[in-house]
Each structure stands twice: as structure tokens, then as C-alpha cells.
Design a protein around this nucleic acid. Structure first.
Lengths: 220, 220
DNA sequence: CGAATTATTGACTGATCAGTCAGTCAGCGC
DNA sequence: GCGCTGACTGACTGATCAGTCAATAATTCG
């Protein structure tokens, strides 16, 4: 029943989904859906919660901690990407929920707590990398998680428009694996402390180089 | 008329939007919408095309080329982020179009060509960085663009669920500006050639370090 | 001007769909 | 067996909504 709802919501969105279709797919009478979930929105909230649990269940923070900071972070990046790829319902329902400004999610206080162990693991990895002197100081774990998720999320959520705009299928295996390397490298490269900061100052480009407003001169 | 449609589609999605509401907001009779656009889907396609043009109009590739490779790429990252922030209709319509597997976008061959000048600029920046010996070799411009877009896109498209899950508003000015720095740094750090590749091999973590399958031992 | 074409309207329709309801059925304690 | 509770059904309804159409106003052009 919930499974059928998630499938229908994934394919059609909240407004596009039909209660009759969900009932038919689940092999029950439509009245039963209302009996259990009260309304279409009630069913949506239940489906959404299920999907969030699925997301968090797919992120194994204990495994991360068994790796070093560099490989642990890289693993988090590619595993998050894999999760979005293999569970399109996560991406689809999150997108739709954002259309509704997270109205249903905000009504569910349990979901926030789901993230605590993940952030504990991220902070631990960051702290370890810093102690070892290889990571830059002052990384905001929330912003880092948003960035790292976005790298995988966008690739999956915009699979179709990107494939249409750039020709070719983004989900060809080789393309996926080289993107996996790219985003892993990108996050790691950001985290690693670098000897000194490169920038464009006094560069050889023929055209005038108004070097942006001094920001970002010094790195960590 | 198109403006009213874009606003309604942004707020409600394709299935959730009401033709009556669009007509009312535009100050015309509903019949006129059908006269001009044929159907709801026709109106959607027109709105989508408009939004894509808006996206590309917001990316000033000429300005990029006037900067050096490092500052040019950083600028592209933060400008793309800014675009998604200030034009929520771009994010909303793209999301919805992906729900429909880009059916309407694929029917419009003009849109693909819109991207050519942007990719030319990206390739030029990458080539210049490579010539100067500061960028890594072999960067796929499409994958790089996907990654760099994703960093900004996710922050905006998932604004509400992220804010609900992590508490606090992601759109506070200071948060935005520090995220801007983060993603700019991240892309630049990825592109810059680094002296030698850091990894976790033979590290000091007490727990067993099965160092993943040899991949990513050497960098560029 | 006048004819043809195009823009625009408001009232209408047929289909669809969330939600209801009266009632059946299965299990369970007694 | 009996009374009760909760799962479950199928037929129904009222509202909503995409799309239609006949008629009118505006515009173009000979």
C-alpha cells in the first residue's frame, strides 16, 4: 500500500497522483486508503517519512568511521550519489516536497533527529583530518553535506533535462563512474589543506584582469 | 500571460496548476490561453522554453573569458548559484520537467543549441588553465558543468526540506555567502593541479583500514 | 469602405477525482 | 453463540477542471 503510493507519487508527483491508481496498484479498495491515512495528504506524509528513512538507512555512517578521513569522505560522496541513483523515489519525493515548502516534513519532528548520527560521523571525520594536519580548518559540516549531496543529487534529479540538453545518456555506466571519480576528487581536494593559495593575480591574459573584489585571497 | 503561467507553474507544478488561475492572473479569458497555446501542455512547453532562455541569458560567458581561468571558473560557479537563487522558476520548472522525463524539452531542438557558447567558454577557460600549467589535465567540461551547477542547484531546489531537516533558514545572507565561498573553493581546488596526491594509505587510525579498491591512487 | 482574418470573451460540458457512506466480513473475548 | 471492534468494500456524489464553441470586437489589407 505504501509501496504503491511511493511508486505513484514518484511517477506523477503529489498533484498528479490518483488515489484510484494507488488503490488499484496495491490491490485494495480506495476507501481503505482513506480509512488508514485519512486523506491524500496523509498518505503523502506517510510516504515521505518512509522515503526519508530509506535515505538514512542507505547511509552507513559506521562504515565511514572505519576509514580514514580522506577515504571516509570520498566514500560518503560516492555512496550518497549511488543512493540517489538507485532510489529515484528519494529524489522525486524530496523535489515535490520542496514545491510545498516542506509543509508536511515540518509537521514531522522525528525526521530531524534521523540526521544526528550522520552529522556526528561527518564531524568526527573532519576532526580527525584536522588533527592529522591534512584537512583545512573551519569546515561547516552542514554546508559540506549540502554541497556533497548536491553533487550527486543534481546529476540524478535532472537526469532527463541534462541528457536532453547535452545529448547522450547521463546514466551510461562509464559516464557514471567517471562522474563518481570527479565528485570524490572535488570534495577531497576542497578538504585537503593546500600549501599556498593559487589565484589569478598578475596573470598573463591579454585582456584586463579586474581581479574581483579581494575576497578569497587567503584560503583556510 | 506567459509570466502568469510561469508563476503558477512555479508555485503548483504542471499537474497542480489551474488554467483558470493563470487566466485570472493574466487578466484574460481562459479560452484565450487555449487559442494561443492549444492546451495546458502547449502552455507548459512555452513556459519551459522561456525559462531556459532566462537561464542562459543570466550566464554571461563573455564576462567569464575576461577573467583568468581560476577567477573565471569561480565566477561561473557563484553566478550560476546566484541565478538559481534569484530565479526560482528556473529550478521549479526544471524539476517538474524531469518528472516528465524531459518529454517537452526533447520536442524542442532549439534549446540544445543555446548551450554552445557556454561550453565554448568553459573549454576556453580550461584550456587556458592547462596551458598555464595550473589546471589538471583531462577535465570533461560537461561533467564539470553538471557538478558546478549541482552545487548551487541543490541548495536552492531543496531549500525547504534542508531548512526543515537541519533547522534554520538556508537563505540567511551570511549562510549564502559562506556557501558561495565553499563551492567556489571546491571547484577551484578540484581544477588546480596539486603537487602530489594525498590519500589515507598506511594511516594511523586504530581500526582496520581496508583502503577501498585501489581506484583513485593517482590523481590527474 | 468592406471583407477577411485574428484576438477575445463568457457560458457551457463531459470527464475526472477526492472523499463519503452504508454495510459486510473476520477475528476475538466471553 | 453473541456482541463488539476494526479492516475492508463498492457504489455513490459534489466539486473541480481541461477543453469547446458560438458570438463579438479589433486589426489588417485590398
Amino acid at each position: 500500500m505504501l509501496r504503491a503510493a511511493i511508486a505513484e507519487f514518484t511517477a506523477k508527483g503529489l498533484a498528479g497522483a490518483r488515489m484510484d491508481a494507488i488503490a488499484r496498484a496495491a490491490g485494495v479498495a480506495k476507501g481503505l486508503l482513506f480509512h488508514h491515512f485519512g486523506s491524500k495528504e496523509g498518505l503523502w506524509s506517510a510516504a515521505l517519512e518512509q522515503v526519508y528513512r530509506m535515505l538514512r538507512a542507505g547511509q552507513d555512517e559506521a562504515a565511514l568511521l572505519r576509514l580514514g578521513p580522506v577515504e571516509g569522505m570520498r566514500r560518503l560522496v560516492v555512496e550518497t550519489f549511488r543512493l540517489f541513483r538507485e532510489r529515484p523515489e528519494i529524489v522525486a519525493l524530496m523535489n515535490e516536497e520542496n514545491l510545498h515548502r516542506a509543509r508536511h516534513l515540518r509537521a514531522n519532528p522525528e525526521i530531524r533527529a534521523l540526521y544526528n548520527p550522520l552529522f556526528a560521523a561527518i564531524e568526527a571525520l573532519l576532526a580527525r583530518g584536522r588533527e592529522e594536519g591534512i584537512f583545512r580548518a573551519e569546515v561547516d559540516p552542514v554546508a559540506l553535506y549540502v554541497a556533497l549531496s548536491g553533487l550527486g543529487y543534481f546529476y540524478c534529479s535532472n537526469r532527463w533535462t541534462l541528457s536532453a540538453a547535452f545529448a547522450g545518456d547521463l546514466f551510461e555506466p562509464e559516464r557514471i563512474s567517471s562522474y563518481e571519480d570527479l565528485i570524490g576528487d572535488m570534495v577531497v581536494a576542497y578538504l585537503l589543506r593546500r600549501p599556498e593559495r593559487a589565484t589569478d593575480e598578475g596573470r598573463g591574459t591579454p585582456v584586463a584582469a579586474e581581479s574581483r573584489d579581494g575576497k578569497k585571497a587567503a584560503g583556510s
